[in-house]
Design a protein around this nucleic acid. Sequence first.
RNA 1: GCGGCCAUAGUCUAGCCAGGUCUAGGACAUCGGCUUCCCGAGCCGAGGACCCGGGUUCAAAUCCCGGUGGCCGCACCA
Length: 502
Amino acid sequence: MNEKLIQLAKRRGIFWPSFEIYGGVSGFIDFGPLGIKILKNIENLWRKMFILKHDFIYEISTPIVMPEIVFEASGHIKHFTDIVLTCSSCKNKYRVDQIIEVENIESWSLDEIEKYIKENNIRCIECKGEFEKPSYFNLLMKTNIGPFSTDIGYLRPEAAQGIFINFKRMYEIARKKLPFGVVQLGKVQRNEIAPRKSLYRMREFTIIDLEFFYDPQNPNCNLINEIYSKKIRILDIESRNKNLGIKEISIETALKNKIVLSEWLAYFMYLSQEFIQKLGIPYEKQYFIEKLPSERAHYSSQTFDHMVVINGNPIEVAGFALRTDYDLRNHSIKSGVELVAERIKEGKVIEKFYPYVAEPSFGLERLMLCSLSLAYSERDGRIILKLPSEIAPYHAAVLPLVRKDGIPEMAYKIYLNLKEKGIDCVYDDTEYIGKAYAKYDEIGVPYCITVDYQTLNDETVTIRNRDDWNQIRIKVTDLVNILNKLLRNEIKFEEAGIPVKK
RNA sequence: GCGGCCAUAGUCUAGCCAGGUCUAGGACAUCGGCUUCCCGAGCCGAGGACCCGGGUUCAAAUCCCGGUGGCCGCACCA
């Protein structure tokens, strides 16, 4: 974790610890004005690439609090709860199933486990100390719904369940055609034992879950040809076991050699790689790691984590899981409502079945953390946040060189016009020009437009490039057009106007 | 959750070990004024802090205990 980045975030209003006036609670982070702008930009870039591009992917929004029964069906009550044993002398904690090898030990009561430990004189595997009384640990955040304490609710630990329980309705909305996908983007909570590292492990964060439903008898992805020859960097189980390191393979190879078991999963993995590249994270700093069966979630038959390497440390930013029909099947059993799709032949329903699910799932704040970390750079003791234009908090800042002779008025007029034309910019006459440049470099604004004495004579302004501090001069009337091209990387900066000599 | 280190204005920090001289010093930031005008420029002025709770003491930013939070390691991470 880059300490200087954390300082910058606090100083400039990107993010800071929550509940500060009451001493803080670890695992919770507040986002300031700039942080929100960056987060929203990342969200919208994601929507553009995953939803807008595909007319068979839909976004919905469902409640954060859910009744207990949802998580009984999903398996979270059982699998998200661990019985924990604590050694009274060395204070190590263990999951009970690591200590007592008895079938179905998780379903025993605490008293039964305590009795068993005493009778069999089971002691700490580290220091041989005695265990304290066993206790539950559940990563679900618990609450009540309504006035009765028996109506238990949980805050969702993933947005996926809100999608699964809506399958029937969404299947209708998708005109009963597979495959289709449903997205939910929103806050989730997990009662982490030890939240750490600022934005990395939080108790509340924003998840982007895409549940993609397909027919297991017809699992092919119609878009796979577009990306067949594209490459991904991958560390599969075999490579992990044999210590072979990350390999670079084509999507075609990944599928033909059954390294990735689903075409749709592979498709979304590649899309994710492209998405994360657009966040400013180069291809070489990304890879997918396949989870071992013991590392996988209870619902998954294959999982890849999408990793980004920041300062040598791999950070998990997304997960790709084959959830099979686990969730739809279990919700069907629990609710008595059939969450199924139909196979139709000659106008008649000949078969009902549970669709399979390929799930890409992203942690929004982690994505921001990666972007900020890689964008962070210093020059001459000054900070430059080299964020991609698409996620920068503003596209441009309009600055008057001096605060007299009608220059601020001229600059303000230009600013208003840019805003009207959809350029997200900011006007600032509070600073000495050099200081203003430094300020906007620091929050990642890619271009500064300066109105100077020459503007009064020939209606031209300068544009300053954040990353190399070079300037060009262009006509005010060309500003919107040129800025748009620059923001979309359609022209080189030096060729966009007349270079200004330093 | 355990162990180690740590906590002073918006940010970074001096002071703490050797308690009083601290009505807590500095830098940057902020606000007001002047001035200058292409890279955190200059001058004048202002506001702003000892994480919380207890204890020791005549006296606590400073010593002790507890809590909270942060960093690192271990454990945990469906």
